[in-house]
Design a binder for these strands. Structure first.
Lengths: 191, 191
DNA sequence: TAAAATATGTAGACCGATCTATTATGAGGT
DNA sequence: ACCTCATAATAGATCGGTCTACATATTTTA
């Protein structure tokens, strides 16, 4: 593929990722992606012959993996799951606030917008959420939690919901409130 | 305003509400709203001189009040808060599934799409979420729950997150998993 | 009460801007 | 010379919004 080509492709994905995190599928207009990345129009359709949907799909997947890796890294330094969730909430809250309440979950907006109308994008969103949930479930199971599957899904819903409310209110308050209550939800973890 | 005018205005709001619930702000194109409502273009800008943003704002507020009322009605028939939340999850899950995984929360998508770029729409979303949270908080306080504010925010985040995951996976599973775990979160309610 | 004036609302052609996508062309690296 | 990739012009559809014309009520005035 060549060094240069790979770099252009990466810049396109990065710019798309950035715009998606702020405004979802429709917030990432092709023109804005091109301007932000500095790439010419033809290059986009060379590297992503599937057009915008392919571009968005790969961007969501990449962003999902980045966050997944971030969570796993955090998991290595924090011993208890409650602390891990609190850490994730804090980290994502920092990101959200530092971006002027723009950058929330890179998957959520696209999922809500497109899951019902685009099978490929729905699959990507489902897959990313599934991988995050799996990470949490494994961690809970290793902790000896009695209901790892249900609890993992609940924790993920909690984080996603808190992030949504924080963006809607332009405030960390929902994140803080949820963080305080997570411990209760995880009762019975290591009895 | 006249009987006919009021009716046209209502049809425009209803059509917009419907489209928003499926696809958010950008899913509710003006042309689609006009086609679905049967109203002519001129009527839209007569009844909503603020254009699309006013139309969407009023639709989100209306949809928010409808769900708020639904929750309060359910609260009258279900004694415990855990049951209330489970009931809400079941009801919204029915709606989501019956619509072919299209109709989720009427506020969430618009909030994620527009909160960062439109002050008026951000305010509407924040206000609706605030009113729902207030309903939950009052209920928890009446139950004698020790942390009504934190818990109300957490329950709302939980419901919103579960609804998001359900739409992303096109499955009730997240809703069911969360419903099973809500009881644990509400421990200490009536000690 | 009849006629005139005004307010309310419908109807759709039309506009510029923006959207994603296609195309033809040619430079640059291997 | 060959494939990779960049470049820009442009297509064609759709976006939200404005405009004028017209119909129907409602109010004012004589």
């Amino acid at each position: 593929m060549g060094r240069k080509g790979e770099e252009t492709r990466g810049r396109l994905l990065g710019a798309t990722q950035d715009l998606i995190e702020s405004g979802g599928y429709f917030g990432a207009g092709v023109n804005q992606v091109l301007e932000a990345s500095g790439a010419p129009r033809g290059s986009l359709y060379f590297h992503f012959p599937g057009g915008k949907d392919q571009l968005v799909g790969e961007s969501v997947r990449r962003a999902g993996h980045e966050i997944g890796r971030m969570v796993r890294e955090l998991a290595e330094t924090v011993p208890d799951t409650a602390g891990l969730v609190a850490g994730v909430l804090a980290l994502l809250g920092d990101r959200l606030e530092a971006s002027g309440w723009r950058k929330g979950c890179p998957v959520a907006t696209v999922a809500l917008e497109m899951a019902a109308v685009s099978d490929p994008l729905q699959e990507v969103c489902s897959e990313v959420y599934g991988s995050w949930e799996e990470t949490l479930r494994d961690r809970l199971a290793a902790d000896g939690h009695p209901e790892p599957a249900d609890t993992a899904a609940t924790l993920l819903a909690l984080v996603e919901g808190a992030l949504l409310l924080a963006k809607a209110h332009r405030s960390r308050e929902p994140l803080d409130r949820v963080a305080r209550r997570v411990a209760v939800l995880l009762q019975g973890a290591r009895r």
